[in-house]
Design a binder for these strands. Structure first.
Lengths: 168, 168
DNA sequence: TCGAACTTTCAAAAGTTTTTGAAAATTTAT
DNA sequence: ATAAATTTTCAAAAACTTTTGAAAGTTCGA
């Protein structure tokens, strides 16, 4: 396989992976394109490289910047804005974990906290069973939360070590 | 909050969480409904409980069974089939991790293996940079893979493991 | 201040996923 | 063997998400 073909393949695979990770496909593809670009790319480069519209580029690049894995750079002598991707894959990984945690785990932790305060006779089997289920889920969610926080904080060798601690 | 309200709230929250985890919302809601049901539920109970069609119930219950977190049970004297959810949340967690790994990580590992075999002059900066990026991603992906495998394999009852942590 | 270069917005169009429900298939009781 | 009960299928409809592209907004140099 030659380089251009390999690049195209990577962009497409990264896009598919992103889609399954709850990242929109185009956003992941833009990230891939920037990740393997030797130079900063302009909005137009991205439009051309992926064959997508200007608005689409704008929207997704903005989101990538929100996630903290792409940034704007200014190229001397150029009026346009250029973009580069974070190349340290660990940082990319932790950024994704952070975003997902924010979107996914934090809200349920909040609701679970409410739900095991459900009113009712503690002698009622139904009430007891419900509370127990909620408490179990809460414990699980908290463990996951701890593991993710440790991951986000750690710079190296994250999940394996944390996970071992939590599971053990 | 009273029990019925709490149940409704839980179903709705679990559904939203599921949606963000790449599980279809209805599938997650059916799982939630079964998780807090004191008795096995029939297809009709689920249709009524969530206000969805028969076909929808059938399809999503089947998928939950594929994931190994819901099973069919027969209630003596009843002709219908009934369903119950796995109540051990740790098992549910590992099932989800297993499915997601299968869908998400395994395919990219396969492609990455191909991609750092890209042909080209090792003196070419472009080729070198590309290979390096691929190798970094591969390393990251492999570590994630190991971590997930450890998580999935750990058969330990999660309750026991938390208990140990609390006691220790 | 003007206008060219560039970026952002957003409503409508295209694409994708999920749901429905009626028909077909299967199972079970008699 | 029959028919009633139940489950499964699947094409079409509905709901949801993403993309487009033209128009509005902004920035910057002269």
């Amino acid at each position: 396989m030659k380089l251009p073909e390999a690049k195209a393949q990577f962009i497409q695979t990264w896009g598919l992976l992103g889609a399954q990770w709850g990242v929109n496909r185009t956003m992941a593809q833009i990230h891939a394109l920037l990740l393997i670009a030797p130079e900063p790319l302009s909005a137009e480069d991205i439009m051309g490289g992926l064959d997508i519209s200007r608005g689409n580029v704008n929207m997704n690049v903005r989101e990538l910047m929100n996630w903290g894995i792409v940034e704007k750079v200014l190229v001397p002598g150029e009026r346009k804005e250029f973009f580069i991707a974070e190349k340290d894959i660990w940082k990319v990984g932790t950024a994704i974990a952070r975003e997902r945690k924010k979107r996914e785990l934090d809200p349920i932790l909040k609701v679970l906290l409410q739900l095991n305060k459900v009113e009712g006779d503690p002698k009622d089997k139904q009430v007891r069973a419900f509370r127990e289920t909620m408490q179990n889920i809460q414990k699980f969610a908290h463990q996951t939360d701890s593991a993710l926080n440790a991951f986000i904080k750690s710079e190296e060798n994250w999940f394996y070590s944390t996970l071992m601690k939590v599971i053990r």
